[in-house]
Write a protein that binds this DNA or RNA. Structure first.
Length: 560
RNA sequence: UGCCCGAUGGUGUAAUUGGCAACACGUCUGACUCUGAAUCAGAAGAGUCCAGGUUCGACCCCUGGUCGGGCAACCA
């Protein structure tokens, strides 16, 4: 499915940079981007922005985009994450160039470059304790203090570094530091650490290595090895750029050189996007897993019924810039509705039922009525829905004492049942507490859909399900992603305070029309007037569990 | 009291080499409809953080402020 026409935008700032680079024929006009996740969690909607950007730019300029796992910290990483990341990117509809790449594939090369650095007197082994190194680095407003090991002879550094590699020292005993500038106003330039000792099994290299490069000694080099031209990352790496360039200066020969460009990460209202916090939700069993339908992860959205198209449209719409932003979830939901409105077949379900008895309809009769699958799509066809003497309608669709502008059912009022007849309310029964128990109506045979009297105008049309032929299911209704308050401005508060304690309980019985059970798992549908839904992949024993993807806009509800 | 970013309608993004601020969402009207959805038509809403300067002319360039974000992990 193509993007909506009107969405063609003018250039964003990254496109402008790229076009300029092409004009100047930098890197022979080649465009090669990359998406470099650390496999330490599942991808979330924020990553989707980065994915769409990197892969999208490559498409747009006939370039390539790599998938590279930035796996330089074995303590947090796992193959489970590698697999989920690949799956999510593919599901979004993007294809990376060649095989997935791994920073760990370059460990040998990185090590050799580090030796070269030492030989040139630009790096040294520091065996001071972590706390001391950190203290000596100083504070942003004051210069740091040089390490006593800073001027260690090259030979000694070489020897020590080799021993580090060979596992002769315990974890944390010493590090390799770049010799740059201890009084730089940029903290990252104050002799940054390039290698640390970590006796930790790596998910890919196993126990082959016990020293691991830091981000700053791995990222730019990896970009260089892969021939990346535009290394696009989020704003928090802006301060690393001088170091990125410094690291490249040490290895680049010739004219090809990657370039780092930063953009503002996505913030979504009502949505927690910190990987650390999401991990906490998973580990604390607040949710059923990374793909819990309430999670703002790509897999969570998938399970909830979001489509890849809708997420891509969303990413396209929010644009890219350098200023901090908070995007309202309603824009995401708009994108979802926009797509689902076109493709989701319409079905009927009643969430909060009240029984309607059609007094002049024959007992035991079951009439199969053809109902449009999608009135906006002529090719969508029809389905048969059973109509019977007793039906359920939504409790909200009947009012004893209707206010002005209420178009649905009430005493002596007429209403059309979708795909069926016009009915008129003649009477109703209340229980001891005053709740409506049953509503008695008559139907007008001539008004059957497509029939002779079908053109008669009534103000309202409501949905219904046969009381005797309908099927029972469970629906999960989720409101915002799982926060009932906007976390913006509450950064430091414990985010669990915002976790809606009722969100898992929003599980209701509902009655659905039989044709719903024909849907394949995870297919999308629209329950008319209720929203878009999808069948959960984990249907309970015999009972369908249905997630609400997103509610329909409801201007009547807003009135109230 | 350091360094690096940023600042345009409610929100997000635009504005060819400086030429009287555009688009989308949202909001509000109205029309239509066998979904109070969708669709269609229309409207309101910013004078571009502030103060100077350069210029015939500045959102755009310069200077100085203000506000917001980031930076002191052997994380990425």
């Amino acid at each position: 499915m193509e993007f909506p026409e009107e969405e063609k935008k003018s250039l964003n700032f990254i496109e402008a940079i790229i076009e300029e680079d092409i004009t100047e024929n930098k890197n022979e006009g080649r465009i090669h981007t990359r998406f470099p996740p650390e496999p330490n969690g599942y991808l979330h909607i924020g990553h989707a922005k980065s994915i769409c950007l990197n892969f999208g730019l490559a498409d747009e300029y006939n370039g390539l985009c790599n998938l590279r796992f930035d796996d330089t910290n074995p303590t947090k990483e796992d193959v489970e994450y590698v697999d989920s990341i690949k799956e999510d990117i593919s599901w979004l509809g993007f294809e990376w160039d060649g095989e997935p790449k791994y920073a760990s594939d370059y460990f040998e090369q990185l090590y050799e470059w580090a030796i070269k650095l030492i030989e040139e007197g630009k790096a040294y082994v520091d065996e001071q304790p972590q706390e001391l190194i950190s203290e000596q680095r100083g504070i942003p407003t004051r210069p740091g203090i040089e390490s006593v090991y800073r001027n260690r002879p090259v030979e000694e550094n070489l020897e020590l570094f080799a021993k580090m590699k060979n596992g002769e020292f315990p974890t944390g005993a010493m590090v390799l530091r770049a010799k740059i500038n201890m009084s730089s106003p940029n903290m990252h330039m104050r002799d940054p650490i390039m290698y640390r000792i970590l006796h930790q099994t790596h998910h890919r290299t196993g126990d082959k290595w016990c020293i691991y490069p830091m981000y700053d000694w791995a990222h730019g080099q990896s970009d260089f090895i892969e021939g990346i031209t535009h290394s696009i990352c989020t704003l928090e790496f802006e301060i690393h750029r001088p170091l990125y360039d410094w690291a490249l200066d040490q290895i680049v020969e010739g004219s090809y050189r990657p370039r780092q460009i930063e953009f503002a990460r996505l913030n979504l209202s009502y949505t927690v996007m910190s990987k650390r916090k999401l991990l906490e939700l998973v580990q604390g069993k607040y949710v059923s897993g990374w793909d819990d339908p309430r999670m703002p992860t790509i897999s969570g959205f998938r399970r909830r019924g979001y489509t890849p198209e809708s997420i891509r449209w969303f990413a396209d719409r929010i644009g890219v810039a350098k200023r901090d932003n908070v995007i309202d979830v309603s824009l995401l939901e708009f994108s979802v509705r926009e797509h689902l409105n076109k493709v989701a077949p319409r079905k009927m379900a009643v969430l909060n039922p009240v029984k309607v008895i059609i007094t002049n309809y024959p007992e035991n009769e079951i009439e199969q009525l053809p109902v449009n699958n999608n009135p906006n799509d002529e090719n969508a066809g029809t389905r048969m829905v059973p109509f019977t003497k007793e039906i359920f309608i939504e409790r909200d669709d009947f009012m004893e004492d209707p206010p002005r502008k209420f178009f649905r059912l009430g005493p002596d009022r007429e209403v059309r049942l979708i795909g069926a007849y016009i009915i008129k309310c003649e009477d109703y029964k209340k229980d001891a507490d005053g709740n409506i128990e049953e509503i008695y109506c008559t139907y007008d045979v001539d008004t059957k859909s497509g029939g002779t009297g079908a053109n008669r105008k009534v103000k309202g049309t409501i949905h219904w399900v046969s009381a005797t032929e309908g099927v029972n299911a469970e629906v999960r209704l989720y409101d915002r992603l799982f926060l009932d308050e906007d976390p913006a401005g509450h950064k430091d508060k414990d985010f669990k305070e915002f976790l809606n304690p009722d969100s898992l309980k929003v599980l209701k019985d509902c009655i659905i029309e039989p044709s719903v059970t024909d849907l394949n798992n995870c297919d999308n549908m629209q329950f008319q007037r209720l929203g878009y839904f999808s069948i959960d992949k984990e249907s309970a024993e015999g009972k369908l569990i249905i997630n609400r993807t997103v509610p329909l806009r409801d201007s009547w509800a807003k009135r109230k």
